[in-house]
């Protein structure tokens, strides 16, 4: 009997579809854009060189070069030649609103909502396990770290938000959850934390973080799960609301 090869169509061909170079350079460009938007990389700062970026992102140098040229065209950086040269973040002439607008326009509502759903599912599961498994010492260490975590500016809040959710995955004792959290944050963290630029959102999320840490410490898995979902809902809703506001006004 002859073995028939499956036709290379549909989901099967998608599995083996090569990762396109263009898509990778766009991913790198978006991560850099998000970091600049959130102020993690500030105006006047020099970006790493093409070779350094390539190494950090694990892409080819040509891909890093394309990404730099994309954000240069978007007016986010300028490239200076010479010994003191490099790519420098511009103090944007665009208002932060315009830059934010460009970023939120590049991603559909469906994708935004799905990014939120994915992270909420990942973190709610991790928080539940963390509450069940954390030893008193681990819970105390988490609480001590959180008490000292700076949430006063958008940048520090973003850094510590990412840190807290990573620590929760660590407390869940699962290498896979930790790896997935690191991967997710590298790709979408800066985007998802954009709402922390607003003082009111920052206060709400900060209060919920305290509740999560407390729930983990007292072994209340149900509450840890629920509060994590609630805070990711706030951050996702902020993105959807802002996208709508900016697009409706345009």
């Amino acid at each position: 009997m002859t073995q028939h090869a499956l036709p290379d169509r549909g989901p099967r061909s998608a599995v083996f579809a090569p990762l396109s170079g263009a898509a990778r350079s766009m991913q790198v460009a978006q991560r850099l854009t998000d970091a600049i938007l959130l102020g993690v990389i500030r105006p006047g700062e020099r970006l790493p060189t093409e070779a350094e970026l390539a190494k950090r992102f694990g892409v080819a140098i040509v891909t890093a070069r394309e990404a730099l040229s994309e954000i240069r065209e978007a007016g986010l950086v300028e490239t200076r030649r010479g010994r003191e040269g490099g790519s420098f973040v511009l103090a944007s002439e665009d208002t932060p609103e315009q830059v934010l607008m460009a970023r939120l326009r590049s991603i559909s509502r469906i994708e935004l909502a799905d990014v939120g759903t994915y992270e909420a599912t990942l973190c709610a599961g991790a928080a539940e396990r963390a509450a069940e498994l954390a030893s008193p010492e681990e819970a105390t260490r988490l609480a001590t770290w959180w008490e000292g975590a700076d949430f006063s500016s958008a940048q520090s809040a973003a850094r510590n938000q990412g840190g807290l959710l990573l620590e929760i995955s660590v407390a869940a004792q699962s290498p896979r959850l930790v790896r997935e959290q690191i991967r997710f944050q590298a790709e979408f963290g800066q985007l998802l934390w954009l709402g922390l630029g607003e003082g009111g959102v920052r206060e709400q999320v900060s209060a919920l973080n305290s509740e999560i840490v407390q729930a983990i410490g007292s072994g209340d898995a149900g509450r840890a799960r629920a509060v994590v979902r609630a805070e990711l809902k706030i951050l996702t809703t902020w993105l959807l609301k802002t996208k709508e506001r900016l697009e409706a006004a345009a």
Partner: peptide, 25 residues
Amino acid sequence: NPLLGTTTEVTRLDLAAREYADYLR
């Protein structure tokens, strides 16, 4: 490895390349 891929030699730990760990004060 999620951060370093597959390596065949020894690699030095480079904390600067682990930006997600900046929160560790």
